[in-house]
């Protein structure tokens, strides 16, 4: 046996990478909260009107008087055994995140599908328009402007606008909140549509621009000229030669964005629509400078990013024979 199977080396490589990433990100997050002002957890735990003695007691009780690395290790132990407790609310963080996840998963899955479809559609239309006459090129520029507006629209503004007009004024959609899918599928859907639209607007604009540029690049490739010279139909040239190659960069982009939103990355949207998801939890914990939930959510995001990037690499390798897994 000279060398291991390439899939095995790939898997081992990624596992090692994951451990390193989790370690690095956790140390960094931990250290940041050690140095920022007003970050002392003992003050928070002891309450607003605590005496110096009470604070001291808390410090000893929770082990904040021990060396940093001991505190770090203990935090890690608690995280990985699922026993980590929030400093400000004294609830189990892992259990809390478990309760928040369904909302975030609902948001991520729905929105990511929508933004992918919208982004690809707009990108293809833009690229096709850009190669036509003067009027079409003007339409393409208009699309570009719309996309730029979507990209630069702040989530809280867009979400509030949607809520105000479609929820508060027209009563088409509920005013935020989350209804579990298992309890009330229709209620779930009506509650999710506005958040989905809100996230989709943010991402679709960006995706459409990336894909448009990618398609225009690909159309200039000489294998596309070869395809035309073969006498196959323009639609076939577009689908099997242009699109297939242009979509390759979108795949990895999508995987990473999916991971980020799933790891609570859409915290503004979640907060505006009061979804009570992981992102909202992260936002609230940050406001309270509550280290344990922030640590767990950061590590969860890092974990998801590594996993999803591995998955997108596998998909890339399946789509593009030139890509080698490593």
């Amino acid at each position: 046996m000279r060398a291991a199977h390439p899939m095995l080396t790939f898997a081992v490589r990624r596992l090692v990478a994951m451990v390193l990433v989790l370690f690095a990100i956790s140390v960094l997050t931990f250290l940041i909260f050690q140095v920022i002002p007003d970050g002392d957890p003992a003050l928070r735990l002891a309450g607003k009107f605590a005496t110096p003695q009470e604070i001291k007691d808390v410090r000893i009780q929770w082990g904040f008087n021990q060396p940093i690395w001991v505190q770090y290790l203990r935090m890690m132990e608690q995280i990985f055994t699922g026993k980590v407790i929030s400093y400000t609310q004294q609830v189990n963080v892992v259990r809390q995140i478990g309760e928040d996840l369904p909302a975030t998963i609902s948001l991520t899955v729905g929105a990511s599908v929508l933004w992918l479809i919208a982004g690809v559609a707009l990108g293809v239309v833009g690229a096709l328009l850009a190669r036509r006459g003067r009027v079409a090129r003007a339409a393409d520029r208009l699309l570009g402007a719309v996309a730029m507006t979507g990209i630069s629209m702040p989530a809280f503004l867009l979400g509030d606008l949607l809520l105000f007009y479609l929820g508060f004024k027209l009563h088409v959609f509920p005013l935020g909140g989350y209804v579990p899918l298992t309890e009330d599928p229709v209620g779930w859907l009506t509650h999710m549509i506005l958040p989905w639209i809100s996230v989709t607007v943010l991402f679709a604009g960006f995706y459409s621009r990336v894909l448009r540029a990618s398609i225009l690049d690909t159309m200039g490739e000489s294998y596309v000229a070869t395809a035309r010279a073969k006498g196959i139909s323009p639609r076939r040239v577009m689908v099997s030669h242009v699109l297939r190659n242009s979509l390759l960069p979108i795949v990895s982009l999508w995987g990473l964005d999916f991971a980020a939103v799933l790891g609570g990355g859409a915290l503004l949207t979640e907060t505006v629509f009061n979804l009570k998801g992981v992102g909202q939890y992260a936002a609230e914990s940050t406001q309270r400078l509550d280290i344990p939930p922030i640590m767990v959510i950061t590590m969860l995001t890092a974990f998801l990013v590594v996993v999803l990037s591995t998955v997108t690499d596998l998909v890339q390798a399946a789509l593009d024979p030139r890509v080698r897994l490593r």
Binding site: E221, S222, Y223, A225, T226, A227, A229, K230, G231, I232, H241, R244, N245, L248, L319, D320, P321, R322
Partner: peptide, 18 residues
């Protein structure tokens, strides 16, 4: 393709890589 066929300069980029 059937009446007039074309061969391009750079065989590296003239074939679809995937």
């Amino acid at each position: 393709g059937a009446g007039i066929a074309t061969v391009f300069q750079d065989p590296m980029s003239a074939l679809n890589p995937v």
